[in-house]
Design a protein around this nucleic acid. Structure first.
Lengths: 129, 129
DNA sequence: ATTTATTTACGAAAGTCTTCGTACATTTGA
DNA sequence: TCAAATGTACGAAGACTTTCGTAAATAAAT
């Protein structure tokens, strides 16, 4: 059996996935209300997007009651994984280290954040020993 | 004066930008030959793409001779920056540390890569002291 | 000089994404 | 009960992307 086709969410679909991860299984209404805070689109637009996402297998839904409830079909982990991997391959020549160093090397990475990373690295080392 | 409109390259445009960064200023022919190694599209398709990229301001070109020479209008740095920033904002809740830890936490990040990152962090610390 | 090859310009088809209007079904509540 | 509100389904328009065929200009070759 082949692994689920690698469907790439569009930006709009991504916004909806974000909300589904954040709020858990939700109705179109709930997603739409949240979405309209930052975006200007009609209700049926959101509905249609979510229906298409369902066709694509990006979300599953429970249609047992009138108000259908949608659930993300990917974990946030999986989606992040795909994006990061693609980014490393295409933009950073396959080197995770380059991505990391590029990211850290930005001025808006705070001292606290760097400390976090360092702590994490040290944890890693401890485990390996 | 407002900063150059934030045009987002499509995936196809990104492929061409990659090649322009890699090979420097190039003709359509050069880009197309390289592109066809991994992709199957006609010459005029590549041409059209690059013309559109020119309209969008993603590339500049020298049309003084018959064979136009195209140059990326963004540095690779700038493009990486945009992508990484967007990713951090949208997928990692604004925390660069989370992106970094997620990236390192993948099994295909080798010991050598991790060592590189550690060395980099230590350099950073030295500079700050 | 004239044919051949290479290149740009242009337009249009096919595909995808986003948007919304309209129709129909179901629930709510007066 | 039956009108109003809310929800889903569907189709189609408009925008954008990708693709390529054809025509016209320029350069190269014989």
């Amino acid at each position: 059996m082949m692994t689920q086709k690698n469907i790439k969410p569009t930006d709009s679909e991504m916004e909806i996935l974000q909300l589904l991860w954040q709020k858990g299984p939700s109705s179109v209404r709930e997603i739409h209300d949240e979405l309209s805070k930052t975006k200007d689109a009609g209700y049926t637009t959101t509905l249609k997007l979510m229906q298409i996402m369902h066709e694509k297998g990006l979300v599953s839904r429970d249609a047992s009651s009138k108000v259908h409830i949608y659930t993300a079909a990917l974990t946030q982990q999986q989606a992040q994984q795909q994006l990061v991997t693609k980014m490393i391959d295409h933009m950073f020549n396959g080197s995770a280290a380059r991505l990391v160093m590029h990211t850290i090397g930005q001025k808006h990475t705070s001292k606290e954040e760097i400390a976090l990373i360092k702590a994490y690295l040290e944890e890693l080392e401890k485990d390996k020993k």
